[in-house]
Design a protein around this nucleic acid. Sequence first.
DNA 1: AGTACCACCTGACGGC
DNA 2: TGCCGTCAGGTGGTAC
Length: 261
Amino acid sequence: MPELPDVEIFRRNLEASSLNKKVSRVEVKDKKILHNTTEKQLNDLLAGKKFMSSKRHGKYLLVQVDQDKELAFHFGMTGKFKFLEEGKEIPNATHLLIHFNDHHMLAYIDKRKIGRVEVVKSEEELIKEHQLAQDALEISWEEFYENFKDKKSFLKAGLMDQGLIAGIGNVYADEILYQARLHPKGKFNELSTQELKTIYEKIRIVLTTAIECGASRKELPAHFIIPHRKEGEKCPYCESYIERLEIGGRATFFCPGCQKK
DNA sequence: AGTACCACCTGACGGC
DNA sequence: TGCCGTCAGGTGGTAC
């Protein structure tokens, strides 16, 4: 679930709640979520330090904790943060708990343990390690065009490829193609430049609108397909009914009336 | 190069 | 009520 808009909201909440507070200690409840570090290393690194700044690249959230050390969070499908006071009940599926001197805590929660926390030297290192493309809200039209114009992949698969553009997941890929009026099984190399440009523009519109809505699916405009993202639901634009198909084993919803091949 | 499929995980939900 | 199968979906790997 956490795609670019969700992670951006996590980042803003983290900035508002946890920036410039001194860390007292770190508790690891489940080692599985640590990628290349240990509970001891995290404590050595973080104790007495502050979260200096944060940024986001695609679906990754980076927190600067030292000159050349950043915490990188990935939220998998069910990951999230919760900020709470010391002494309050710790939420279920909390795997990492960061205690601050002011008696607040940051809990990293992930029911399905697919998310990961790691330590990197820099954003560049993270990008290299995970072979991430430019962020979906940062990518220029020129770079987007270069990355996609010759691709023979399905539109849906390409938009979700973090090595081509970073931050778009299953749900927002459907929304972008719906608003671009393009069939998810279309191919990039068969599109006109204008159609590619439409996708590029819709990416920005969809993601920024979602962020403005607090990444809450329920708050999205009614003309988005996401609130109707279910087989047999009525298309908000035309008289057709939403259909489901699978691309790369992932559920894909589209409107057969609006999105012709 | 691109797609399919699997593994990782576990809560939610529908059918019977 | 309760058991069971299926779904959800990001990443990263392998097989074709």
